[in-house]
C-alpha cells in the first residue's frame, strides 16, 4: 500500500527493460535472417561485394521470380508441405498415446522400451542410409510420399514421445484420477482432460515435428528419385552446382519456404497464453 504511487512507474520501467532486452536479443536471430533476406535481392556478385551493403544497386526480385515461375520448384514446395503435414499429424497422434503410457503407467518393460525409443534416434543417419534405403526398396516404397512420411515419423516419434512424457509429467495425476473416479476410462482422461490442457506442449511438439520433416535433406534425396517427388531442401541443394552456386536463388527459396511456416507458427503460438491451463488445474 505504501508503494501504491510508485507501483505503476515500477511496472513501466520493468516493461521498458523487458522490451529493450527483447530487442537486443532479437538481433541474434534477426540479423542473420535479415542478411539472408538482403542477399536474396542482390546479384550473385554483390553478395560477395566488400564493403557489404544491406541494399545494393542490383536490388531485384529476379531470384524470387526464378523460383516462383518454375513449376518444378513449386512442386518441391507442394511435396514438402504434404509430407510435413502428414508427418506432423501422425506423429502427434501416435506420440501422445506413447507419452501418456510412459507418463501414467508403470509396467515391467517400461525402462527397456524407453531406452529403445531413445536408442533408435541415437544411430547416426549416415550409417543407416544404405540398410534403410535397401529396406525401403524392399518394401516397394522407393520414390513415394509414404517412404518419406514413415521415415520422418521414425525420427520424430522418439522426440514426440519423450517431450509428451515430459509435458504430461508436469500435470498432476489427480486430474486423470478425477476422471476415472467419475467413471471415465483412461482414454477419456487423456483426450478430454490431458490433451486440452497440454495444448501448448502439443503445439510445440507439432511445430518442431513439422520443421524437422520440412528441413530434412539426406533421406529426402535418397528415398526419392524423380524430380516430381523432391522436397525443398533437395531443391536448394540443386542450386549448389559443381562449379558455382546460385546464391541469391538459394536464399530466395529459403525465404519463400519459411514464410508459410512462420504464418503457421504465428497462428498456433496463441496457444502459448500464460495461465491458460491454470484454471483447469484448479477445477
Amino acid at each position: 500500500m505504501l508503494n501504491a504511487i510508485s507501483r505503476p512507474a515500477k511496472i513501466r520501467i520493468a516493461r521498458a527493460l523487458v522490451i529493450i532486452a527483447l530487442l537486443i536479443g532479437a538481433l541474434l536471430p534477426g540479423f542473420p535472417v535479415l542478411w539472408m533476406l538482403s542477399s536474396s535481392f542482390k546479384s550473385n556478385m554483390d553478395i560477395f561485394a566488400y564493403p557489404p551493403a544491406l541494399i545494393t544497386d542490383s536490388f531485384s526480385f529476379g531470384a524470387y521470380a526464378a523460383v516462383v515461375t518454375s513449376p518444378e520448384k513449386l512442386r518441391f514446395f507442394l511435396n514438402s508441405y504434404l509430407v510435413s503435414m502428414f508427418v506432423t499429424i501422425l506423429t502427434l497422434l501416435v506420440g501422445i498415446l506413447g507419452g501418456y503410457s510412459f507418463s501414467r503407467y508403470e509396467f515391467p518393460l517400461k525402462r527397456p522400451l524407453n531406452m529403445v525409443i531413445i536408442g533408435v534416434q541415437a544411430v547416426p543417419p549416415i550409417t543407416l542410409l544404405i540398410p534403410y534405403f535397401s529396406l525401403i526398396v524392399f518394401l516397394k516404397l522407393h520414390n513415394t510420399y509414404a517412404a518419406l512420411v514413415l521415415t520422418y515419423m521414425v525420427f520424430t516419434l522418439s522426440y514426440a514421445i519423450i517431450m509428451m512424457t515430459g509435458y504430461f509429467n508436469t500435470l498432476p495425476r489427480q486430474l486423470d484420477e478425477a476422471v476415472m473416479i467419475d467413471g471415465g476410462s483412461s482414454f477419456v482422461a487423456l483426450w478430454r482432460v490431458l490433451v486440452p490442457i497440454s495444448l501448448p506442449g502439443i503445439v510445440s511438439v507439432g511445430v518442431y515435428t513439422f520443421m524437422l520433416a520440412w528441413n530434412e535433406f539426406l533421406f529426402a534425396l535418397t528415398l526419392t528419385k524423380t524430380t516430381d517427388m523432391r522436397t525443398v531442401p533437395v531443391g536448394i541443394q540443386l542450386l549448389m552446382g559443381q562449379h558455382s552456386y546460385e546464391w541469391n536463388e538459394m536464399m530466395a527459396m529459403s525465404v519463400l519456404g519459411c514464410l508459410p511456416v512462420l504464418l503457421l507458427f504465428l497462428f498456433f503460438q496463441r496457444y502459448f497464453i500464460a495461465g491458460m491451463t491454470a484454471g483447469s488445474v484448479k477445477g
Partner: peptide
Amino acid sequence: LLAAVVMLSAIVAGCAPVAGPAA
C-alpha cells in the same frame, strides 16, 4: 488403438499409388 494402427497402415498403403506416377 486399432483405429490408429489401421490409419498407419492406410497411410502406407494409400500413399503408394498416389505417390509415384513414374513407377
